[in-house]
Design a binder for these strands. Structure first.
Lengths: 193, 193
DNA sequence: ACCTGAACACCGTTCAAGT
DNA sequence: ACCTGAACACCGTTCAAGT
């Protein structure tokens, strides 16, 4: 990449991060180019699709989640690893409002720039779930895709201003549904019933 | 309302129902007016906001849900009434893709045309929940707003093409989290774990 | 009263023309 | 190689002009 192109690319990412944080995943790309002081075509050259831009914005978070999954697999109990990682996933997807809808769409769209990352996420979820299931700590009638869906639903919930105050609490409710009685006894916030 | 106005109003609703079913809650209002063979201003005269149009489209379903809540309160066991009504809510909100986001936004926006209906829904949810809680059938650390949020999250899930096949299954998972052990023993699909 | 559609200010996306 | 911005086809929303 030529030096001037690299400079545009980097600056576009900085500006896009701010604009998408403000306006969400359906932010105006025109506005991004405008604020970056760059022609609209330049943005499209570097990021041919909205997904490509978001992928670049999210890549660091995705990589961190993948590393954290591997780490948790050896450092924590199966049930704690699973729940803790799910919480991190929700936090990551929540970074940009509305991006989770594109992520769940990407998992079945091999053309999407987000496809590979999302498939990797789901694979990590599947591994952590399998470990918890093998230990009798997670119900066995769900799979990685179900977890991915629940992460999406909980992220969506946190994206809605009127529901956001409940997001943490409801994360706990859903997490308790994933775990077995045995795990609930050994784990986190005292289960009631 | 003048006879010609009434005719336009009714026809707009029929056309809007089809267009919103196709395109979702962010359907093109221009397209609705165009397909109805009516000026754009006519649509705005009858439905000053998108919410007003959706409210008209959803009113029948809302009324039915309210009636069903009252009926279930006397005809079914507390846990069956609650779960069955929640299922109906999700089905109703799922009728038009994306409408659930406007519904959850409306619950805190007294200016929204959807506000009253959503507050009524939440009140019905609160009553059914309280009845189940009093019978020891539902966990007591959630309230009607939490239920409303979970309905929203499950509806969103069903709105996503890649997750829709899991929506029914995950409804069961979340429903099991709302019920107590006692209710799970007495209720529906055999709980595992 | 009610209807119409032009007008305005925005989009996303493409692509010929420039450097 | 890379950048620019006009061009095109869409939006939502308003409002003067018509009937």
């Amino acid at each position: 990449m030529r030096a001037d192109a690299k400079k545009n690319y980097d600056h576009l990412l900085v500006v896009a991060s701010a604009v998408v944080a403000e306006q969400g995943a359906d932010a105006s790309l025109r506005d991004v180019a405008r604020r970056a002081g760059v022609g609209l075509g330049t943005l499209y050259r570097h990021f041919p699709t909205r997904e490509a831009l978001l992928e670049a914005l999210l890549r660091a978070g995705f990589d961190e989640l993948a590393a954290r999954a591997a780490e948790l697999e050896t450092s924590s109990s199966p049930e704690e690893a699973l729940v803790s990682w799910l919480r991190d996933c929700v936090a990551c997807a929540h970074e940009y409002r509305g991006v989770v809808a594109l992520m769940v769409a990407a998992i079945e769209d091999t053309e999407s720039a987000l496809h590979a990352s999302c498939v990797t996420m789901r694979a990590a979820a599947t591994r952590l779930l399998a470990r918890a299931q093998a230990a009798g700590m997670a119900r066995t009638d769900i799979d990685g895709t179900d977890l991915f869906a629940l992460i999406g639903a909980l992220t969506w919930l946190g994206d809605q201003p009127s529901l956001a105050p409940r997001a943490d609490h409801l994360f706990g409710v859903v997490a308790s549904a994933i775990l077995t009685d045995q795990a609930r006894r050994s784990c986190a916030p005292r289960p009631q019933s």
